[in-house]
Design a protein around this nucleic acid. Structure first.
Lengths: 104, 104
DNA sequence: CATCTATTCAACCGTCTGGTTAAATACGCG
DNA sequence: CGCGTATTTAACCAGACGGTTGAATAGATG
């Protein structure tokens, strides 16, 4: 909804490691070290990425013992999708046909 | 399609000035100085933003005299929408109902 | 040609980013 | 308590970012 929220959402999605983390989380929640395992970066770096994702509202985190499982929260993605959706006519086939006609 | 393309697209969309520029361009092409007018930043700053948008493929630019009109290219937005669309189940009502059931 | 307008390029600046390593914190368990 | 594991915090670093001002380039026009 707010501009600042879209800023945070798109900025969070701009990093390939963070998108990969979300992809992993799409198949179920996971802890920090589980998430870090596939990546060539330290667990601390992943912890930072999770903080960015959490700051954007893209994940929420639980606590069971010393584990901090993350899970996806889709709300910001819904907003982002809605924002992009406003431009749908710029890539739909009907638009391309219109463009062609305009360019003659 | 590629990871790097999504990086560029989302990074370009993460800035509110650039999103506002796209919004303006949605109503038709515009020159650099026309685009700069509504913003409290220099025309040079807008020129940089346009370079970022162009680098992400979100705009293309023509040339007529000393004017460089920009227009939206929706292709990268289509990719971004497709990426986000993969997570649609995390915000759709059907998912929320499923979640509730799981949390029971 | 001289000048005005449109745009870009260059250099600089403070801040943010994504990474590191080292230290601190917190929990589980024998 | 003491140790091991999970995670975060702190300090640091190089590079990117978004902005500025000033100079350069390029086209339109008197």
């Amino acid at each position: 909804m707010t501009t600042a929220q879209l800023d945070r959402t798109f900025a969070a999605l701009a990093d390939p490691t963070r998108r990969a983390i979300l992809k992993r989380l799409a198949s179920g929640e996971a802890t920090v070290s589980e998430l870090a395992k596939p990546f060539p970066v330290s667990v601390q770096a992943v912890s930072k990425h999770l903080k960015v994702l959490e700051g954007a509202g893209l994940i929420t985190r639980g606590r069971t013992g010393q584990l901090r499982p993350s899970r996806i929260d889709g709300a910001p993605l819904k907003e982002a999708a809605a924002w992009i959706g406003d431009y749908q006519r710029f890539w739909e086939r009907s638009f391309e046909r219109m463009e062609e006609r305009l360019r003659g």
